[in-house]
Amino acid sequence: MALLEVNNLSVQLQTKTGFATAVDRLSFTLDTGEILGIAGESGSGKTMSALTLLGLLPQHAKVTGSAKFDGQELVGMTNKQWQQIRGKNIAMVFQDPMTSLHPMLSIKTQMTEHMITHLGITEKQALVDAEELLIDVRIPDPKKALSSYASQFSGGMRQRICIAMALACKPKLLLADEPSTALDVTVQAGILTLLNRLREEHHLSIIFITHDLGVLSSITDKLLVLYAGREVESGLTSTILQHPRHPYTQGLLDSLPQPDSKEKLLKSIAGFPPELGKQPIGCAFAERCKFAEPRCTGHEVQPTFAADDHKFYCAVDPFAFTESREVGA
């Protein structure tokens, strides 16, 4: 049985003009020790999906569908039930380590608080454990670090502390929302190496959210590409990055700087994603898609299944023969 089974999960947020769909019938599974990447632009619903799995959605948000974690249904849980899971079995690392740590509380206080609450251990024991966690994430001089404050650390060190904090209650699932986006590439490489090691050593499952396909390529096993709250393509990371079938995924790859290009301009997908709550019926990307045909809009796009659990939602399928062409050539 998969650790996490998400089925037809939808999230609707309250806006001035009524409810708007931020996440639209999302389904995926995650096994123990597996890393799933969620890719997409801002507003694609990637952060909202993560917040749903932590019960941290804004007030009055409507959640439908199902998300089973370790056999337990998360949708519809009360606040009291969430408190048993949030930070304990499912933990989260946020994008900006500058703002996710409290500037006025010592690292010690921030690290041990939830350990004492969730694990029922004494403060003394929590301190011992916290020190070990800091060693595990490679913080030099962990004793001194515990009595320091967030401002005394660099961005990379702060993110390591946030990861240690998230791991304190031995979660089975870690949600990492753009955990390396705010960092320098050299520091980012360290964080990726750390997360990959934690997955191997602790059999941690990770949902890694970012718009950076390079980062996703280096660390994830499978990918879920979102556009305007909907899945457009999913499958093994290697398959999707080497043979994308959805024009949006191809567009994302094309808009990365091309190392061998003599052209100075970067490619970008023309236009903007639809506004929240204004997704059309049919393919939400059709408006910006150069392959779009009349049949793309007006009715639901059915998924196409290819080898290795590769799935995509494109009626035109313009890259259908990419693979065979390469084989033939």
Partner: peptide, 15 residues
Amino acid sequence: AIPKPDGKGFLPLEL
């Protein structure tokens, strides 16, 4: 240290 989007799953080298 720059991760490459080639789907080959190599971690970037850490400094």
